[in-house]
Structure formats: structure tokens, C-alpha cells
Design a protein around this nucleic acid. Structure first.
Lengths: 224, 224
DNA sequence: GCTTGTGAAACGTTTCACAGCA
DNA sequence: TGCTGTGAAACGTTTCACAAGC
């Protein structure tokens, strides 16, 4: 993706890393159903990938399988967690205490995967001091406490849930406060230092992709 | 992506379609700043793509540019909207009136891009009848009214914002009710009829990708 | 001059096919 | 026998480079 000078890129494809997260999710579901082992074929089928794809993805990181047997579910879970870095807990803050920010701060899915929201920030004086719905221990703080919180609570990630107009300033604040990566929900391309990790969740873009696919689906159906 | 038999795939790469949405967003921002024209290079730089990439993406759909001049902003906006199908309004329903569902139902970003949330559903009797926060005209309805609403209000899309355990049932209900595509926020791989459009927003997966990138970023920095 | 549109080359990813091992 | 791990082939996407046009 971004080949940096002086950095031997032993290139793990970004799509492979993304799929790793999905394998992990399926494996955890299998574990809940008391499955002991699985195969590249079974794992792939559930997610719509070929067996070769699954094996290749895993092979980028080592040899986790047992020929003739498959993969031990619990073992593979540990390995993938270690690869993704979610074998330890990550601390994150949410900036923006609107409805989306509130929902993200309260979202249980993050906790289940090793992420903890330790604080929520907003500059609206009306909101500061109020607790997050369903999470009374999280009270909304003013943005000028951001840096202090990041340092004191060992925060590595910032989640940006403010309107587009405010997002770049929030990104600058988060970078300055010392977070190591940003998950951005605002519909703008953030400008950050070179190589700084940003992941963007484009809610409207996903609907647009869906609209496009629905239209072309209909077109190709009628052409059959 | 999915080559169907009997369907001549004149193959527009999926990544190209995704970028189209991002170009549209940048172009709309330019329009607000009263820019008349732009170039593939300017557009690409804002989003981190090469000029050739931008031109190639657009070329899949026709010839929109003016050699020596560039692209007229308003013209390109109309063209991209027509390609994506967002030159007309799409109606969508949200299923799941938890905090995430409520936030999505109230999210202004959808309306700005041509999507209208016409109803919100939940089976919790405590929630049924209550209005969505900040959107008093949206009252939560029980799921048994789903099909009727889809038909009567010409709903083309369903947004699934329920817990993982309930998501497959909701997907089945949405397909049966007649929606043409699903935007899924639950952390499961939905099983739907072959070729049925589903887009998934994996909130936790994005954080995991970020965790991975933060870890490898640090590794490659210290290796420099 | 500058910028698009586009074949051709370069690059990256996925699939194939099979050796090797339980 | 069954399944993994992996080079090699196939495929798809991005970048290059330049002819054509304003």
C-alpha cells in the first residue's frame, strides 16, 4: 500500500489483514458452538472465500495448521489475536458526543474485541458533564482535557464522531494529544502526518455502493 | 467480483466504484467553495490517489473531461450521481432501535446524499411507539409491519442494526419484505439469496485493522 | 501551454495444483 | 485418505507514457 523508503516491505496485502478479522469472528462463533477444529474450506465457505485464499492469508504469518486435521479453533484464535494485536486491551477515546458518538461510546461490540472506551469529549457546554446513555461511568468531558486523558489513561486510539466541518480540527487535536491512530466517521479525507494510521468509516458511501449495486443488479438481471 | 453466467461482465472494478463516491464528496466540497473546474491531479491529491487513477476510474463510465481544461465540477457531480443512482432519492428502513439504530435513523449525512429513512423497527414492546430522538416524526414500529411499510413507502434498502444473534432473522425478514439491498452493522456474515446486494460495516474490524497498522507502524519505524 | 483518455507495462492478488505430512 | 503450505499460473488493478484536443 504505502511503500516507505528504508522499510523492507515484506508486504502482507491489506485485504489479507482485513480478512483475518473476519476469520477471527467466525472462529469465535465456532468456539461458542464448541467446535474443536475447522478447515480452510469450512472457514472460507462461511465468508465466501476459497479454501486457498484462507490458507494463503494465514501463511503470511506462519504455519498454524495441521495437515490432515485442519486448524485447532482455540489455537488459531490466539494466533490471530496476537497478529492483530488484540491479545491485549486497547484504550480509545470518542470525540463528539452526538447520537453517533454516544452510540459508539456505548457499543458493546468494541469491548468484546479488546477495545475499551475510556472517555468521551465534546465542546458543547450543554453536553459537558452529562453521562453517556447506558454507560453512567462515562461523563462527557471538554476537549481541553484531551491531551491529559490520553497521557494519563494510556489512550492509543481516537474515534472521531463529529460533523465534517469540525473533523480536521479534531484530527489535529488527537494527533497532538498523542494517539497512535484514528477511526474517522466524518465524511472528509483527514490530513495527518505521513504514515499516521487512519481508518475511515464512510456511512453514506456504503449506501451509495449499495445503490449502485442494486441498479446494476437489476440491469444485468433484465439482460439475462 | 461475482461473474455470473449469462451476464457479460464489462467489469468495472469494485474499488473504482468506491472511489467514485469519494470523488463525489470532494467535488461537492469544491462546489461549496465555488470552484468551477478541477483536474484529475487536484482531485486525486485530496484523496491520496494518482491523477491516472482518477482518470481511469472516470473513463469506465464515459468521457466527462475537457482536455486542457479539466473537469467542470457541477457537471461531474451530476454525472457521478447518475452513475451511482443517487440522482433520485432512495428510501430505507432501519431495523433495530438501539443506540446505534437510533443514531443511524437520525444521521443527517444520509439525507444529504439522497437517502431517506422512512421507518424504524424493533420488536421490543417497550420501544414500540416511541419516537426516535431528534426525529419526532419517526416512531418505532413492530417488525410485523415491515412488509407493509416496504410496499407502501417504496422502500428499497434495509439497514440492519440489531445484535449479531438477531441479524440473520432480520436479514431474512428484509429480503422477504422486498428490499433490494441490505446495509449490515451486525458482526455476522449474512446468508442471502445469490447475488443479493449486502454491504457490511464492521465497526470492530476497523478498529482491529487500526490496531494492526499501529503495531506494524511502530515496528517499521524502529527498523528504519 | 495544459489536461484528458487510453493502450501497454508493471505490479499485486487470487486461484490452481500438487508435494508433503498426519 | 484428508488437509495444509506453497511455488507457479491466471487474473485484476494501478501506473506509465503519450497521442489527441482545448
Amino acid at each position: 500500500m504505502d511503500a516507505k523508503p528504508g522499510c523492507r516491505s515484506e508486504a502482507v496485502p491489506a485485504p489479507a489483514v482485513r480478512r483475518l478479522s473476519l476469520y477471527l469472528r467466525e472462529l469465535e462463533a465456532m468456539l461458542r458452538r464448541d467446535r474443536q477444529t475447522t478447515s480452510s474450506m469450512e472457514l472460507g465457505e462461511k465468508l465466501g472465500y476459497t479454501d486457498a485464499q484462507v490458507r494463503k492469508d494465514l501463511a503470511y504469518f506462519g504455519q498454524f495448521g495441521h495437515p490432515g486435521v485442519g486448524y485447532r479453533v482455540d489455537e488459531l484464535i490466539s494466533r490471530i489475536r496476537a497478529i492483530l494485536g488484540t491479545d491485549k486491551t486497547w484504550n480509545a477515546v470518542v470525540v463528539g458526543a452526538g447520537q453517533l458518538g454516544g452510540a459508539l461510546a456505548a457499543y458493546r461490540g468494541f469491548g468484546k474485541r479488546g477495545f475499551r472506551i475510556v472517555a468521551v469529549f465534546d465542546n458543547d457546554p450543554e453536553k459537558v458533564g452529562r453521562p453517556i446513555e447506558n454507560v453512567p461511568e462515562l461523563r462527557i468531558r471538554p476537549l481541553d482535557q484531551l491531551r491529559q486523558t490520553v497521557v494519563e489513561q494510556d489512550v492509543q486510539m481516537g474515534i472521531c464522531a463529529v460533523p465534517a466541518e469540525a473533523a480536521q480540527q479534531v484530527a489535529d487535536d488527537l494527533v497532538a494529544a498523542g494517539v497512535k491512530g484514528i477511526l474517522n466517521f466524518a465524511p472528509v479525507a483527514l490530513v495527518v502526518p505521513d504514515g499516521f494510521p487512519v481508518a475511515s468509516v464512510e456511512l453514506a458511501v456504503h449506501l451509495e455502493q449499495l445503490a449502485y449495486r442494486i441498479n446494476t443488479e437489476i440491469v444485468s438481471r433484465s439482460a439475462e
